[in-house]
Design a protein around this nucleic acid. Structure first.
Lengths: 146, 146
DNA sequence: ATTACTGTAACAGAATTTATTACAGATTAG
DNA sequence: CTAATCTGTAATAAATTCTGTTACAGTAAT
């Protein structure tokens, strides 16, 4: 007997950080203005503090500048055609695309070796994605907007 | 003032399903035998019921055969050089590599359009990963084991 | 001074992922 | 035909991860 689990995929590999970061950077690229976290949050439809968390990371990675105090906000640190989507991905993501490893049994021949081989594969997978994202600039992405 | 968050990345994009599935298939490819979920679980170091959940999905996707009852277990449904890592990825993963979308404000010009453009990009990213994984067979992966 | 911002901590709540237990049904061996 | 051993899957608990919220100190402009 074999019946399908009602929902094929039990698990997902999901978060919202890349979409949020790209939304922020798109707004900054299009308006070419200093935007406040509240204003950006209104467009993304999330909390301003969440936006500030993303801004903080993008700032550490040199993609944006921020200015504190009245009239402050965020702006691009460099032209949109110098920002690669791989830069954004690298800023918001640490994990491997293919996910996590198990902690297999070292007494078993397969278990003993597999994590080494998986990591090698995970690196290749990450590299393929990053290479693809490296061919697209923020400016390219923004061109889609009317 | 700008201090780093102690842990750069707040979020991760992680699960263990791909590693588990590939571990299972590697064992089946190497032993060329009918293996029980308990035996496999001992190598991965997880619960047999978890293994059976993975087996169930791999079976639906035609990568393995299973046999119930005493002496039952799982075996490859086709030669290891006919199983692509992209097949395995497709079986265990539904989500987009770049994660989820927000629910942005439709009153905003950027918010109104961005999900369409993001989805297009997400597709390209998924495609790049799947293309890479399509160049590697289970047999290739197993060759790394001594 | 007042106002309007950022930066970040602290924590709460939601969602997702993993683990566990249990048991009906299948199949084989004796 | 009975016992033993296995799958399939449900139900649910536990753990982890992700998102949202509140609060407030510090900064800067007016």
């Amino acid at each position: 007997m074999l019946l399908l689990y009602c929902n094929k995929n039990m698990y997902s590999m999901n978060n919202i950080q890349f979409a949020t970061a790209l939304h922020i950077l798109t707004m900054l690229a299009i308006t070419k203005d200093n935007l406040s976290s509240s204003y950006i949050a209104g467009s993304i439809n999330i909390n301003p503090a969440m936006v500030r968390k993303s801004l903080s990371i993008l700032s550490v990675y040199g993609l944006i500048d921020t200015k504190e105090g009245k009239g402050g906000g965020a702006s691009l640190a460099k032209p949109a055609d110098k920002i690669l989507l791989s830069d954004i991905y690298g800023a918001v993501n640490d994990a491997n695309v293919l996910g996590k490893l198990n902690s297999p049994n070292p007494e078993c021949n397969t278990g003993k070796q597999i994590n080494r081989h998986l990591l090698e594969l995970f690196d290749q997978a990450d590299h393929a994605l990053i290479t693809k994202l490296g061919t697209i600039t923020l400016a390219d992405f923004c061109q889609k907007f009317k």
